[in-house]
Design a protein around this nucleic acid. Structure first.
Lengths: 144, 144
DNA sequence: ATTTAATAGGACATTTTTATCCGATTTAAT
DNA sequence: ATTAAATCGGATAAAAATGTCCTATTAAAT
């Protein structure tokens, strides 16, 4: 569905959000540890998220990553997915045709449109804040 | 969503089915040409489909690929996807967790379960025969 | 029997994705 | 000012996916 990079990205942003809600800025190392991801690779992904203004990075000693309270509410999963995987997830043809569309569709065009639309809606309606609610009470997890 | 191999596989199987309905056995070259795929790579995929009894291959002069009439009706897209990509598409965790499940879920577990379930149902309920109906009347396409 | 047209399959090549390493830069604390 | 702790970013490495090439095998036609 998503690339590994995107999966790590969502998990990382979710962890950062959960800690930002506690006013804790977190380091790369802590993030990678808490979401069980390769450290250096995660660094690259955090850079991408930072460049896309999805997370804030602070350089230097006692630096790290954080997300402002207000942003946590209105950043949606769709923004993270778009920043890392682009819009391929919900616009590309299910059978890989370059110019598949309603007027020259592949045999499963309509069926895929439906599923991708559902996925898109889900991603666009799930905020980082919502992602963290289960985490805080130990109902959901970000590793293993 | 699917690997390139799987996309080619679905398109190839669909084309073979459409021609088998006309009692035409088709060659690798013709298939690759009609679905706009790399010839040698397509050969590998057809081998996989053949080993998985999804298509029949006939060696030697005037050989090629075909699907028996009866099979065309009851082969579902899910079988093709499974033969090439395994069941990752609808069982893997959306965030890449190895052991994500209802009792230890990732933050989007329920939402992904829903979407994957829809995808699974769609694949399990779409037969190769259904894939060919639009093709025959020029309503759907397998290339570009 | 020989030739020809086809798939089978192993080895190899290329590209993309995933992952690592290291020096440069920034900033807080001493 | 110096040191220590952190991110940034470029170069490189490893693994996986995609794609190619060549020989072997098969079977029909001559």
């Amino acid at each position: 569905m998503f690339s590994k990079a995107c999966e790590y990205g969502i998990r990382a942003a979710t962890y950062i959000a959960s800690q930002s809600k506690l006013s804790r800025r977190v380091s790369l190392k802590e993030i990678a540890d808490e979401i069980d991801s390769p450290v250096a690779f995660t660094a690259k992904i955090l850079q991408q998220l930072s460049r896309n203004k999805i997370i804030d990075s602070v350089k230097g000693a006692s630096g790290g990553f954080e997300i402002s309270r207000s942003q946590i509410d209105h950043i949606k999963l769709s923004q993270i997915v778009y920043a890392i995987d682009g819009n391929n997830v919900y616009v590309g043809c299910g059978l890989g045709l370059k110019k598949c569309n309603a007027s020259k569709p592949c045999p499963v065009h309509d069926k895929f449109v439906q599923i991708r639309e559902d996925l898109k809606n889900m991603l666009e309606n799930t905020s980082l804040d919502e992602m963290t609610t289960g985490l805080e009470v130990g109902l959901t997890y970000l590793k293993r």
